[in-house]
């Protein structure tokens, strides 16, 4: 795997690979001496949907949150679009974040704002604060928001308040908000874990569709192995803070799952 890292990282960003994400030796310790991530080395391509699977508490959420620096990595590099995200701070960090969309397990919509206002939150990295305060967002942002609401299947929901929506509707708004950022990559932290099976499939379909249509790479943390196999073009299996499987979904064997989740009784 180390052989793959260097050419991609050093090559001038071109085509799809301009959105490639390279992690090198990424470590995170919330408490000193107890690493949650034990030196992750990964190269994620600049397109397609990548699923990260693994048991709870294995560092999947931490990994994703390190990428947009909601969590501060202890050491290591996060190379994206010619920058080491791990070293950014202040203004440069905010301008990197606005190109990274994020979808959350519990949607994290601002409950007391309308659907439209939540979507426009995705533009806050571009729009000055006084415009947000007066709700004077640029007309093209508002037009985009209406288009996206149609695209995620929520036409006519713009003026509804977020706390009046169902879980599936909220997650659609969450995805639309991420796309509003015009992101170069989307991070989805267990986007289906709070949803019923049917809605979960619909949400994964929407993510998969955006990844393909808009050519945005999507990284999804997911518990459901079947959904991961069905929608991902690549699967990363993690356990105990390390990557133990990295390859296509077809290559994921029962032995691999046993390594990832431990034991075998649960598989019957």
């Amino acid at each position: 795997m180390q052989g793959q890292v260097s050419p991609l990282a050093s090559a001038a960003p071109q085509g799809d690979d301009s959105r490639a994400l390279v992690l090198r030796g990424l470590r995170k310790e919330y408490r000193a001496g107890q690493p949650v991530l034990r030196g992750i080395d990964l190269v994620l391509p600049g397109s397609g949907l990548t699923a990260i699977i693994g048991p709870s508490g294995t560092g999947k959420s931490t990994l994703i949150r390190c990428i947009n620096r909601l969590v501060q990595p202890t050491s290591g590099e996060i190379l994206f679009r010619g920058q080491d995200l791990a070293k950014l701070s202040g203004r440069s960090l905010r301008s990197a974040r606005r190109r990274i969309g994020m979808v959350f397990q519990e949607y994290n919509l601002v409950e007391r704002l309308t659907v439209m206002e939540n979507l426009l939150c995705g533009r806050l990295g571009y729009v000055p604060a006084w415009r947000a305060w007066l709700r004077r967002f640029p007309a093209q942002d508002i037009a985009r928001a209406f288009d996206l609401l149609d695209a995620v299947g929520l036409p006519g929901f713009a003026t509804r308040r977020a706390d009046a929506l169902s879980g599936g509707q909220r997650q659609r708004v969450g995805i639309a908000r991420a796309i509003m950022q015009e992101p170069d990559i989307i991070l989805a932290d267990e986007p289906t874990s709070s949803l019923d099976p049917k809605t979960s499939v619909e949400i994964m379909e929407i993510l998969h569709r955006f990844a393909a249509e808009r050519n945005i790479p999507v990284i999804v943390n997911i518990h459901n192995v079947e959904l991961a196999k069905r929608f991902a073009s690549r699967i990363i299996g993690m356990t105990g803070g390390s990557v133990v499987y990295d390859g296509p979904p077809q290559g994921l064997t029962e032995a691999d799952l046993k390594t990832i989740y431990g034991g075998e009784n649960w598989m019957e």
Binding site: N68, L70, R94, S95, A96, R97, R98, R99, I100, G101, M102, F104, E106, N108, L109, V110, E111, R112, L113, E117, C121, G122, R123, L124, G125, Y126, V127, A129, A132, W133, G174, R177, Q181
Partner: peptide, 30 residues
């Protein structure tokens, strides 16, 4: 307030003032 909502606004690259306006103020205004 719910920090999850604040986290989401922060993740979009919003500055501190914008986070206050769109993430904090709606939660505390009433």
């Amino acid at each position: 307030i719910s920090l999850k909502q604040v986290e989401a606004v922060r993740a979009s690259g919003a500055g501190f003032l914008s986070v206050l306006i769109m993430g904090v103020q709606p939660q505390v205004l009433p």
